[in-house]
């Protein structure tokens, strides 16, 4: 059985995009060939037993020559180790996993709304939407802590021809405030929109509230602790709406859900 676990994948490039944000380009043709936007990979940060578990990362970009990118902020030991990997290192990368974004058939306008590292899958998504022959309006509303965190990412979106609007916590770039406050500035309520979002829970809750009010369909990408990424450990349970004691699993049922499938509290 040949798949991404058969052998480790080579790191082709390691970039620092700011003081604590990193992007790894990894040679993993089987993943690059089959991945859908919104799907994720499980990456082993060390070859030993500590840290023990793989870390889930949404797929940031794939290329036709077989590379896969992940984008992450250093938040703990696993990401610190990954940040220290360099070109020529090998990592065990398992995937693609989970259920990604889906597009409505009709060509409604699309807004991709990302916050922090939740921006990662939206670049892949944007490219995929453009390649699918989409002819409506496609915009990206991106939220970050500060200008340094978002500069080069914004360029990547603009490079694809996607219109962007930025909100930063400190006002060092774009709107000084929340990314949700950009929605009604950039999304004409007279038009039909579908919204695809990934970011911190409170941000996505804000996005979902506006979408509910405007009657816009919205898909959200959820993040939880995860041990296996493939439906075995059942560690990534989240409540189902209407019955808080009934659970769904982010790794298999998601990570992308319709906003109506999520409990917003």
């Amino acid at each position: 059985m040949e798949h991404s676990l058969t052998r480790p994948s080579e790191v082709i490039r390691s970039e620092a995009l700011g003081s604590d944000i990193f992007r790894l380009t990894i040679m993993a043709p089987q993943i690059a060939d089959t991945a859908q936007p919104g799907q994720f990979v499980m990456v082993q940060a060390a070859s030993g037993q500590d840290p023990l578990l793989r870390r889930p990362f949404s797929i940031h970009q794939v290329s036709g020559n077989g590379t896969v990118q992940i984008l992450f902020k250093v938040v703990g030991r696993g990401t610190r180790l990954l940040a220290a990997t360099t070109k020529g290192d090998f990592l065990s990368v398992f995937g693609p996993l989970g259920k990604g974004f889906t597009l409505a058939k009709q060509n409604k306008n699309i807004a991709m709304i990302g916050g922090g590292m939740g921006i990662a899958p939206l670049l892949f998504l944007g490219k995929w939407i453009l390649r699918s022959g989409f002819s409506g309006k496609l915009i990206a509303l991106l939220g970050a802590r500060n200008s340094a965190e978002i500069n080069s990412l914004q360029e990547d979106f603009n490079h694809l021809g996607i219109t962007t609007a930025i909100a930063t916590d400190d006002g060092s770039r774009g709107h000084h405030g929340l990314v949700t406050q950009l929605m009604l500035q950039h999304m004409d309520p007279g038009e039909e929109w579908q919204v695809l979002t990934c970011g911190p829970y409170p941000m996505m809750r804000g996005v979902a509230e506006i979408c509910q009010g405007m009657n816009w369909p919205c898909q959200v990408s959820m993040e939880t602790m995860m041990a296996c990424g493939m439906g075995a450990c059942l560690g990534c349970a989240i409540s189902k709406p209407n019955d808080l004691h009934s659970y769904q699993h982010v790794c298999k049922d998601g990570p992308v859900f319709a906003m109506s499938e999520i409990v917003w509290k």
Partner: peptide, 17 residues
């Protein structure tokens, strides 16, 4: 249905569930 989340956490060379 199982327990409410969070259900797992990584620990040194192991995990709690």
């Amino acid at each position: 249905p199982g327990n409410p989340p969070p259900r797992i956490v990584e620990t040194a060379c192991g995990m709690l569930n």
